[in-house]
């Protein structure tokens, strides 16, 4: 996107549709979970859509992202196919990871989405390595890594930031500060001024933005990513947002103050974006059409996922490693994928 396109209503309308796609995915995924269609549990991105959308809107297909456990939104924003993702959640043939990984291990290497992650902070150190590979190969690409507020208290966060600065790597760190780390209020276990000050301690340029304001995230991400692309080294983007849903699909939110969720729901990003679009002269019908198109696409994805077959058990033996025979149950010795 060139500078003059920035924040043009037509562009924001497109991004609004991406946010709706993420919202619809998360809502339908929750329904599928409640209906017993999802084998594992899910971490929803509801309320944080503007961050992943605004950041990835400024990335190219050739750029990489590394995500975390709350990765559905990042994946969709980077261009992963929601239908394949829904199949992954339901453990069906055609899932992004061949139904081997589930919600926490969605990846789509074809669009530079190098993986969600079940272990906090590991994406940071791997992201630094991906940036080092870009430098080594002389590629014109960058890396963006998403990290939660709670995860900034793990040691690898500091190792990765230091490393990125030392080797002047083309990497953007995106800290999504949604206030919580599981059931713990992050500030109750965090010393000092928080993520921005910590990044500054490494001499890293920082950006601080209202993560629920898509227009603002888009603009700030453009600047930060422009700096990375321009050879100015690692940049740190701190997006203030709020985790509207429970930490995980089973979470009953017992630790929240009365009315807190409702109060924060008033600031959710989709409504604010729709209002901005209307103010900028986009017709209400067009806004509604974007939203409807997103929901229709996700509804179709759900139907396709439900109709897809479960993978054959023999696929479990595939992709473990090249060398060494698989250890197959005697009753399955004649399974197609089994005897290699």
């Amino acid at each position: 996107m060139s500078e003059q396109n920035r924040n043009e209503p037509a562009r924001i309308l497109q991004l609004y549709e991406t946010m709706c796609l993420i919202r619809a995915f998360e809502e339908r995924a929750e329904e599928a979970f409640d209906a017993g269609l999802v084998n594992g549990s899910i971490h929803q991105y509801i309320g944080q859509e503007a961050v992943g959308t605004g950041v990835c809107a400024n990335l190219r297909d050739t750029d990489y992202i590394l995500s975390n456990h709350r990765g559905h939104g990042h994946s969709i924003a980077k261009g992963a196919d929601p239908e394949a993702m829904m199949k992954e959640l339901m453990g069906r043939v055609g899932g992004t990871s061949g139904a081997k990984g589930g919600s926490m291990h969605i990846a789509d290497f074809s669009v530079g989405m190098l993986g969600a992650n079940g272990v906090l902070a590991d994406g940071l150190t791997m992201g630094v390595g991906a940036a080092q590979a870009i430098a080594l190969k002389g590629e014109d690409a960058i890396v963006a890594v998403f990290v939660g507020d709670g995860t900034t208290n793990r040691g690898p966060f500091y190792e990765a930031l230091n490393w990125a600065m030392v080797y002047e790597l083309p990497i953007l760190f995106v800290c999504e500060n949604n206030t919580y780390a599981s059931s713990t209020l992050t500030r109750s276990v965090t010393a000092g001024e928080g993520p921005v000050a910590r990044a500054q301690a490494f001499g890293m340029p920082t950006f601080d933005v209202d993560g629920n304001d898509l227009v603002a995230v888009d603009a700030v991400a453009a600047e930060a990513i422009g700096a990375v692309r321009g050879g100015k080294g690692p940049q740190f983007l701190h997006a203030r947002t709020y985790r509207v849903k429970g930490h995980i699909s089973r979470d009953k939110l017992l630790y929240r103050a009365e009315g807190e969720t409702e109060e924060n729901w008033k600031r959710e990003p989709l409504g604010a974006c729709a209002a901005w679009l209307a103010e900028e002269g986009i017709a209400e019908d067009d806004i509604a059409a974007a939203r409807d198109a997103a929901y229709a696409r996700i509804d179709a994805a759900v139907e396709a996922a439900k109709a897809a077959p479960f993978p054959d058990a023999s696929l479990a033996y595939q992709d473990v490693q090249d060398l060494g025979p698989p250890e197959i149950w005697p009753e399955n010795l004649r399974m197609p994928g089994g005897a290699s």
Binding site: N39, G91, K100, A313, Y317
Partner: peptide, 25 residues
């Protein structure tokens, strides 16, 4: 269990599992 990371989808996850039936066999 067979030497594999634990897979996600149910049929594959069951392939990983040591079950009473497998113990009996």
């Amino acid at each position: 269990a067979p030497r594999m990371p634990v897979p996600y989808a149910e049929p594959m996850e069951n392939e990983y599992r040591v079950t009473p039936a497998r113990i009996v066999a």
